[in-house]
Design a protein around this nucleic acid. Structure first.
Lengths: 213, 213
DNA sequence: CCTACCGATCGGTAGG
DNA sequence: CCTACCGATCGGTAGG
C-alpha cells in the first residue's frame, strides 16, 4: 500500500511532533508554531505532521497538554512526598524556580504558559480556555496548600490563601522575564527572598530571619 | 504629480498609523502587527503604510516608542507632582493600576510591554533591545523612588530598592494577566493589598494596618 | 500616497 | 505517511 506505520509507530511520531512543538512554541508562541516549521525540523511533510491533528488548533492544544505534563512532572510531582502545608509549599517553590532556571531543553524560550497566556488573553477559543483552565487549576492547588499551612499553624491565621497564590504567580512571571529578557543570575535568589517574605512562617518577627542575605 | 501630501499631513498620517499600531500590537503582538492589517484598518495601501517606516522592524520600534509615550503620560507624569519618596511611589502605583484597568482604548489587548517582552525575550535584535531598555529604565526609576522613601524614613532602613522594584514588576504582570485572561474585578484590590505589604511604611507592625480589608 | 507586482510562507485539502 | 496542489497573506519593491 503506502508507507503507513503501525499504531505504535504513529503514536511515537505524534509524541515527537508534540515534544518539538513545545520547544518551538516556547520560543515563537503557539501561533508562531507553524506546521511547516515542525515538518522541516522533523524531516517530515506538512501533511504528515498535520495528519496527526487535523487542524492547527488541535496541534496547539496537544502542545499545551504536553507542556502541562512536563510541568507536572518537574514541579508538582517532586513536591508530592513533602509534608503537606508549608514544607510542600516550599518544595513546590523550589521546584518551580528550578524549572524556570534549568528546563532550557524543553522550554528554550521560557515558560510556555506565560507566553500562551499573553498570546491568547485577548482572543476567544479553545486554546485561550485551556490556558485559563491551567492557571486556575494551579492557583487553586497553591491556595489549597497555603490553606493547609495556615491550618497547621505554619502561616498566620489571617493569611488569605488566594492572595498568596496570586502574588506567587506574579513572582514567577517576574522570574521568567528576568531569566529570559535579562539573563539575570541573581533572579532566583530575588525570588526566594520575595517568597520568604510572602510565606513567612510566623508573625513574631520584625523582619525575615530564617534565611541569611 | 501624485497625491503626495504636505509634510504636516504626512506626519499626521504617520501618527495615525502608529496609534493604530499600538492598539493592534496590544492584541496581536508586535509580530502580529502586520502592514496589511494596518492598511485595511486605515483605508490605505500597504505601500502607503510601509513608506513611512521602510521596514516592519522600524514600524515595530515606532509603535513601541508611541506606547512608551502613552505610558509616561498615564503613569509617570500624573505622579510627578507628588512628594518624592513614598507618596510619589504610591501615586505611581495607583496610576499604574488605573492604566491597566482603564486604558482599553489605547491598549485593548492589555499591556503592550508585557506582550512585547514575552514575544521578543527569546530573540535578538533592535526590538528586543528596546523592550529590555524600557523595562530597565522603569525599574531604575522605581528603585530610585524607593531609595528616596528609605532615605526619608518612610520605609525600613534595610529595604532593598532593587528587590522592591523587581517585586512590583511581578505584581503588575500578575494584574495584567488577571484583567486580560480572567477579567477579575477584584484584581486591583489584590494588587493594592500586595503593594501595601511591600511598601509597608514602618516596621512597627504585626501585620498591615493602614488599609481596611 | 497609489497600483501592480515579487517570492515565500501560511493553514489546509485531494488523492493515494 | 507522501506529493502536489489551493487561495490567502506575509514583508517588501518598482515605478510613478
Amino acid at each position: 500500500m503506502s508507507p503507513r506505520k503501525s499504531v505504535a509507530e504513529a503514536r511515537r511520531t505524534r509524541e515527537r511532533i508534540v515534544e518539538r512543538g513545545v520547544a518551538i512554541a516556547s520560543v515563537e508562541g503557539l501561533e508562531g508554531l507553524t506546521i511547516g516549521r515542525l515538518a522541516t525540523d522533523l524531516g517530515m511533510s506538512k501533511a504528515g505532521v498535520l495528519g496527526h491533528f487535523g487542524t492547527k488548533q488541535t496541534l496547539q492544544l496537544a502542545t499545551l497538554d504536553e507542556a502541562a505534563a512536563v510541568f507536572s512532572r518537574l514541579v508538582w510531582e517532586p513536591a508530592r512526598d513533602a509534608q503537606p502545608g508549608l514544607p510542600r509549599l516550599r518544595a513546590i517553590c523550589e521546584a518551580w524556580i528550578t524549572y524556570l532556571e534549568t528546563a532550557r531543553d524543553t522550554f528554550p524560550g521560557g515558560c510556555l504558559f506565560t507566553t500562551a497566556s499573553i498570546e491568547f488573553d485577548a482572543r476567544d477559543g479553545l486554546v485561550r480556555d485551556a490556558v485559563a483552565r491551567l492557571f486556575r487549576l494551579w492557583r487553586r492547588r497553591l491556595a489549597g496548600e497555603v490553606r493547609v499551612a495556615v491550618a497547621a499553624g505554619d502561616l498566620p491565621g489571617d493569611t488569605d490563601p488566594e492572595q498568596v497564590a496570586y502574588e506567587m504567580g506574579g513572582l514567577y512571571m517576574a522570574l521568567n522575564q528576568e531569566i529570559q529578557l535579562f539573563a539575570a543570575p541573581e533572579a532566583p535568589e530575588r525570588t526566594r527572598r520575595a517568597l520568604d517574605r510572602l510565606l513567612a512562617p510566623r508573625q513574631d518577627r520584625q523582619d525575615r530571619q530564617d534565611r541569611p542575605a
